[in-house]
Computed example of a mutant assay.
Amino acid sequence: MSLPADPGTMGRVLPMTMPRLHGSLVVLRAFESGDQDLVTSVVSDALIPLITTVPPDGDAEDVAAYIARQRGRLQEGAGYSFAIADATSGKGVGQIGLWTREAHLGRATMGYWVAPQFRRRGYARDALATVTTWASSFTVLHRLQLFVEPWNTGSWRAAEACGFEREGLLRGWELVGDRYKDMYVYSRLTSA
């Protein structure tokens, strides 16, 4: 995923350790065992288990496996899976990922979710802004992109507030449950 670090490559190589990132409202950190309540709280959400690997039930073993998967994403080469935590309490409120499998092509994909009980408080926007600023510091990444269902106004408004531009509608782009759904594609160039 990355080249050996040397002074000539600083800023071009993505780190192989999980950083801890601080925004205004959030701290982005690796998932912890204490995040089990957060994950359990979203298993009954109408969408999150369909578009993520959150288990569709609250089984403690499945929830623990989800947390373990998030902790292993970087080592497996998928990218960075951050727990979104409230900056004051430290309590987990959601997840945001910077998926870097296409970093060699100069691009990364972002995705995020916030538990229903924590929505409309600015957490998604602050988490997205924080990851975007951090990711833009790596010259290996030229393009950041994300995909949002057209009805998900809160999500695409957060993207637009962070400087992402809607490029178009991708028809039948994402398998959600048992149906292919349309998605807006948003991007932001790191030089912007």
Rank of each mutant, 00 (worst) to 15 (best):
L189M: 14
S24G: 15
K91R: 14
E102M: 05
R69A: 12
D126T: 07
R179L: 05
D178S: 11
Y180G: 09
D37S: 12
S191A: 12
E61I: 13
D86R: 08
H142A: 07
L146N: 00
M110N: 02
L144W: 04
A158K: 10
P4F: 06
M183T: 05
A127M: 10
S155C: 03
D59A: 12
R120P: 00
S41K: 09
L21Q: 10
G177D: 00
L169S: 01
Y112G: 00
G168R: 02
P150N: 08
R143F: 04
G106W: 02
D178G: 05
K91G: 05
S2D: 08
P55I: 05
A129Q: 14
Q36Y: 00
A83T: 11
M1W: 05
D178F: 01
Y66T: 03
A87R: 15
V93M: 11
L28N: 06
P56L: 07
F147E: 13
G34Q: 13
D86F: 05
L128V: 15
E160I: 04
L21W: 02
E102K: 08
R125E: 15
R171L: 11
A127H: 14
A85Y: 08
H22A: 13
A85C: 15
G163L: 10
Q70Y: 04
P116R: 14
L74V: 13
A64P: 08
P15G: 07
E167A: 07
F82I: 03
M18W: 07
P19D: 11
V26K: 07
G111H: 06
T132W: 11
R12M: 04
P49K: 02
G90K: 06
S41A: 12
G92M: 01
S44P: 01
G122D: 04
R121P: 01
I84M: 06
Y184W: 13
L47Y: 00
I84P: 06
G34I: 04
I51T: 15
W113A: 01
G122W: 07
G168E: 01
P15M: 07
V26A: 04
A159W: 12
S89L: 02
Y66Q: 03
R20V: 14
Q117K: 03
P116H: 12
R12G: 05
A161H: 09
M110E: 08
D86M: 07
M16Q: 14
Y184T: 00
E76W: 02
T53H: 11
Y112T: 12
P19K: 07
Q95M: 13
E174K: 10
S136P: 08
V54Y: 01
A78F: 15
L21A: 09
R69T: 11
R143H: 09
S187G: 04
V63P: 05
D45V: 03
L128F: 05
G163A: 11
A108D: 07
Q70P: 06
R188T: 06
D86L: 07
L169V: 12
S155W: 02
A46S: 13
R107A: 00
S191N: 10
A192D: 15
M1F: 12
A127I: 13
A108W: 03
I96Y: 11
P116I: 08
A158F: 12
A65F: 06
R120Q: 15
G23I: 08
D45C: 00
